[in-house]
Design a protein around this nucleic acid. Structure first.
Length: 433
DNA sequence: TCTGGGGTCCTAGGACCC
DNA sequence: TCTGGGGTCCTAGGACCC
């Protein structure tokens, strides 16, 4: 196996900068839904000490003090730019796994020529055609490609941290074993793909510190002390491929739509509206993958951060009469679930709907017509999806989502969103002479 | 005052079966 | 007096990823 990992640097921030060049070289953060916390930081924002996931109110002062620019997440824009990046990156090899919105693995098996030069060309193309800077790491396993990618990005961002020729594109296959070991020795073990904070701390307690230390572990010990997951990570660092490239995206096993509210919600009516809305969105995703759900999970909870509030958190799984992707039936189930778990007198901060026991619509079990809810509304749902796609989300919805009579102030806060430049005619960027 | 959203996989333990 | 062994399925919780 030889595989490349292509990953856009500070993706959301870079996406914003590609349409607003005045943001370049400035501290920029993109905030999570509800403008809650930092989910992307430019290099300058990192240098100011803004942490991944840090609550916005904790570093809001930097706006005045350091010229920090904070933006609401604009997922429509990021999703569209992501598609463009992925189609260029796919040109690197024959098989591609889109791993997340900003990164993908590409298999280099069977590709002739100089991989490093090829990767540099693809990187240049992404920069020129989409305006986004990326890093590319190449290795014999996915974990090694991830590690190489870390080297490539860090060498670029912090000159002197690694040999300069590895900046932006790092190909471990170009190096001999001793050189790779030196890179691993210079890297903290927390950077390893698959080692999180918990296991990282346990490895530290055992006296390990660097990627090289983990690579040199005995795989059997890794399995006995931790799990097969850690064993695989050790073996992958040693060059044995244990994690396959997933060429075709697997259908989802569960689909969720959950939101924190813009302000606390107390009434069951508003929760019904919100959950109907979430159920509708979840069903839309489900229909897109051609699936049906057997169960609906509903949850509501207060904010664990509001210590002064009474706390409450509950969820319930509602079985569906038969597997369905019908928004109306799923809304009914979600509302029935809500009524079972709702208690008065709490400040609800978050709620959600999850669709479980997903199965393909094409292998539906036949059964006797019991005359209860058997009317097939597949065509109605398809029409609803087309209208909402064409005229915008919320053009058609089920009545329990609210008539608009009640204030929908539970909607998330998004006070700093930039235009959806590439997907909405009326929000396109305008060039002035 | 203000703290995201959406996933996957693995493991252990209990229930249950023959 | 003597009281088995092997297996599956389900669920909750933990850990990780971006």
């Amino acid at each position: 196996m030889l595989v490349a990992l292509i990953d856009v640097n500070n993706f959301y921030c870079s996406a914003e900068m590609s349409f607003r060049p005045s943001l370049k070289n400035r501290p920029v953060v993109v905030l999570s839904n509800n403008d809650g916390c930092a989910v992307a930081r430019s290099n300058e924002a990192k240098a100011l000490g803004v942490k991944m996931g840090q609550p916005w109110h904790e570093f809001r002062n930097l706006e005045e003090e350091a010229g920090l620019v904070a933006l609401s997440a604009n997922f429509t824009l990021y999703g569209d730019l992501s598609d463009r990046v992925m189609s260029i990156a796919a040109g690197l090899g024959h098989e591609q796994e889109v791993y997340s919105i900003d990164e993908c693995f590409v298999s280099l098996e069977g590709i002739p020529g100089d991989m490093t030069a090829r990767a540099r060309a693809v990187r240049e193309r992404i920069l020129q055609w989409v305006g986004l800077p990326a890093g590319i790491g190449i290795g014999r396993t996915k974990t090694l490609a991830k590690f190489a990618n870390h080297v490539a990005k860090t060498a670029d961002r912090k000159p002197g941290s690694y040999p300069g020729e590895l900046a932006r594109v790092a190909n471990l296959a170009d190096l001999d074993g001793a050189e790779v070991d030196r890179l691993m020795e210079a890297t903290e073990l927390e950077e390893i793909w698959g080692i999180g904070p918990r296991i990282g701390a346990q490895l530290r307690a055992d006296g390990l510190a660097t990627v090289l230390d983990v690579k040199q572990m005995d795989p059997a010990t890794a399995r006995r002390r931790w799990s097969v997951v850690v064993e695989r990570t050790v073996r992958e660092l040693q060059g044995m491929s244990c994690i396959d490239l997933e060429d075709a995206p697997a259908p989802k096993k569960e689909i969720a739509c959950t939101r924190s509210f813009g302000r606390p919600v107390r009434s069951v009516t508003q929760l019904e509206e919100a959950l109907s809305d979430f159920a509708g969105r979840a069903c839309e995703k489900l229909r897109r993958q051609g699936g049906r759900a057997g169960q609906v999970l509903v949850f509501i909870r207060t904010s664990p951060f509001r210590k002064q509030d009474k706390q409450y958190s509950r969820s319930v799984v509602v079985p569906l009469r038969r597997p369905t992707a019908d928004t109306g039936l799923v809304c009914q189930a979600a509302i029935a679930g809500l009524r079972a778990i709702y208690r008065e007198g709490f400040n609800y901060a978050k709620a959600g709907v999850m669709l479980l026991e997903l199965q393909p619509a094409v292998v539906q079990q036949e059964e006797l017509d019991l005359g209860d809810d058997t009317s097939d509304r597949t065509d109605l749902m398809a029409a609803m999806d087309r209208l909402n796609l064409r005229y915008g989300r919320g053009t058609v919805l089920v009545a329990s989502s609210g008539s608009g009579a009640l204030p929908r102030d539970w909607h998330m806060k998004q006070e700093r969103r930039t235009p959806r430049y590439t997907t909405h005619w009326d929000e396109m960027a305008v060039a002035r002479a």
